[in-house]
């Protein structure tokens, strides 16, 4: 199968998935024994006959269920996710203002995990069974057992309150002027504005949440790299490379690591799900104004349109990331396309 055909096929397969996601969200909202009207306009607006009338018409609540689903779909495609009870703004606008914070945190966590996880994983794999390997194994096991909402608090206790070497919760130094909004990513925006003090401030606020959120991904990257290196180092081409007199360092970096990186691409998708899940907890602890925190606040105050919209956005991001990972993988490893 050619690359283009594979990509097209993969794209087409994504469409039913997206329908499925909206259907699941629609169904779980319909199975709950709460008046759908209350879910759309909120308890307080129920006394206002005009609002009630408008909502019934807009979401087709006087129509059969399948027509309601179609209305729901049409509204989503128009970019209308309803209005948040809490902020009284369209959910889509809320999501738009909260998304960059989550993207910034997720990207920096992913970078942290990859930049630290690959070298450590390679070393552990090369020195398979050594004391270093076993300590790395133990630390990553411990890391995988830490509840992020708790570790976040402990880090704040230690590094912010006790030692005072990192800033506290939030995305930006409270008394500093924020850079003009361009991408919504505070680090990027301050760089664009050429404001190095703001860049430093934004970066220092990233440190703790990145370590907490990236820690989970780090353990995953490390384990996969280690296993892949151990596997590759047993292959015959490694023996060939060694026997032609190549320095061991080059054998590892140029030959083994290159092939070991392939499985890593596939786990990036998995890692991303972990980051989105983890962001919910990490953002809550660090008062990070992203999608995760938005969802938690919405859930705590039963802001149904916001919960539904936020969940939908995260699921769509997740599906798209997995699509990109699959395509990237098929570019890197032609065997996938033929398999």
């Amino acid at each position: 199968m050619s690359l283009v055909r594979y990509i097209v096929r993969r794209l087409i397969l994504t469409i039913p998935m997206l329908f499925g996601i909206t259907l699941v969200l629609f169904l779980i909202y319909n199975l709950v024994q709460v008046d759908p009207l209350v879910m759309i306009i909120g308890e307080r607006a129920m006394d206002n006959p005009q609002l009630v009338e408008a909502a019934i018409r807009k979401w087709g609540l006087d129509r059969p269920v399948w027509e309601q689903y179609l209305t729901y779909l049409t509204n989503i495609l128009r970019g209308d996710l309803g209005t948040s009870f809490l902020t009284r703004r369209p959910v889509l606008d809320d999501l738009r203002t909260h998304l960059p914070a989550t993207v910034e945190l997720a990207v920096s966590s992913l970078l942290f995990a990859v930049l630290l996880g690959i070298p450590l994983g390679v070393l552990a794999g090369v020195y398979f069974g050594s004391l270093f390997d076993r300590s790395v194994w133990f630390i990553s096991l411990l890391n995988g057992s830490l509840p992020p909402f708790w570790t976040g608090l402990i880090f704040l206790f230690v590094f912010y309150y006790s030692l005072g070497i990192t800033p506290g919760p939030g995305r930006f130094p409270p008394r500093m002027e924020r850079p003009p909004v361009f991408s919504g990513l505070l680090t990027l925006d301050s760089l664009i504005a050429g404001d190095m003090a703001a860049f430093g401030g934004a970066l220092s606020h990233l440190i703790l949440p990145t370590v907490i959120l990236g820690g989970f991904t780090l353990a995953l990257v490390l384990r996969v790299t280690r296993a892949a290196i151990v596997e590759e180092m047993r292959r015959e081409y490694i023996r060939t490379a060694r026997s032609k007199g190549l320095a061991e360092r080059l054998v590892v970096v140029r030959h083994a690591l290159r092939n070991a990186l392939l499985p890593l691409v596939t786990i990036i998708g998995l890692a991303f799900a972990g980051l989105l899940s983890g962001a919910v907890m990490t953002e809550t602890v660090f008062d990070w104004a992203g999608i995760g925190q938005y969802l938690v606040r919405a859930a705590a105050s039963l802001d149904y349109p916001a919960i539904q919209g936020g969940t939908l956005l995260i699921a769509v991001i997740y599906v798209v990331v997995n699509l990109c990972v699959d395509i990237l993988y098929s570019v890197l490893d032609p065997r996938v396309r033929h398999g």
Partner: peptide, 15 residues
């Protein structure tokens, strides 16, 4: 297709 925590959060908030 939903990250686990996110779906669990949505469901338990609804219920």
């Amino acid at each position: 297709a939903f990250p686990a925590v996110v779906l669990a959060l949505a469901i338990s908030a609804l219920l």
